[in-house]
Write a protein that binds this DNA or RNA. Sequence first.
DNA 1: GATATAAAAGACATTTTATCTGCTTATGGA
DNA 2: TCCATAAGCAGATAAAATGTCTTTTATATC
Lengths: 153, 153
Amino acid sequence: MERIDDIDLRILRILQEDSKKTTKEIAEKLCLTVTPVYERIRRLEKGGLIKKYVALLDKKKINRSVTAICMVSLRYHNEGFIDKFDRQIKELKEVQECYHMAGKVDFFLKIHLQSLDDYHDFVRLKLSRIENVGVLESYFVLKEVMHTTEYYI
Amino acid sequence: MERIDDIDLRILRILQEDSKKTTKEIAEKLCLTVTPVYERIRRLEKGGLIKKYVALLDKKKINRSVTAICMVSLRYHNEGFIDKFDRQIKELKEVQECYHMAGKVDFFLKIHLQSLDDYHDFVRLKLSRIENVGVLESYFVLKEVMHTTEYYI
DNA sequence: GATATAAAAGACATTTTATCTGCTTATGGA
DNA sequence: TCCATAAGCAGATAAAATGTCTTTTATATC
């Protein structure tokens, strides 16, 4: 991928905010015609800079009001165990984010659920049954202060 | 918003995964014509169930390879202070997520940056200068095991 | 500074998609 | 059974995306 210039950046900022904006609307904002804008977007897609386009849903309206953060430490740290944990975590539909961390905690999970009861079940029936899971530390979100999918570029 | 049925759910699953799918493509998957699919999508948008459509960028390709997790505890917990922290955090472009938590830690931040040096500057010049910030605990992501914007519905 | 060359932008035609309208078919009570 | 209502279909129209070709602009070289 060649370098991206200022026009590319402005296009990316717009699309991060609202990907339904038409090429024409974007072109007008940038004082260009549709063709260059169209071609730039295609180039950004082909180059993989734009990964995908998605619809974002309202958590509350689909009944996923509980957000839990869970820090997991494994008992043993052989490479095989870490990969195994990775694979098993990816199977769990409740998990929205999972990071392998540097530090005393090994993994960091963000989980979305309907209720605290569901979290109880999640830990008891799924998470704690994954082999080699050691310490679990759970935190619950009281209020989402901010949450964006955009990067400041 | 009226209840959502199984067809709505199937539409939402598709749009969460790829919002560029055309009404026609979705209609074919669901064995319907474009009109009902079109109207359902409009209804889901109007009802606020679909919040927005966005483009997701590749973190690495835009030079945001470092993800830090930061747990913040405030010194004092009067209501005013909490709101003030909220407002000031929202101003920081590096912060992608911020949650007010239940427990011994007050806030939970996810931050995206170019380098560890930038994190150093972020903490030194921005975070630690916010009034009333007490303990900071930082973690760094070694590997993103999973990260999705989709909800399992 | 003039000129050659390539990259970027524009103009416009064509294809595809979104959107609207009117009509038909299910569905669930009274 | 019949009515009322919601959901779906078919086809027309408007708008957007896409492709092609031309013009402009920037850049490098002489």
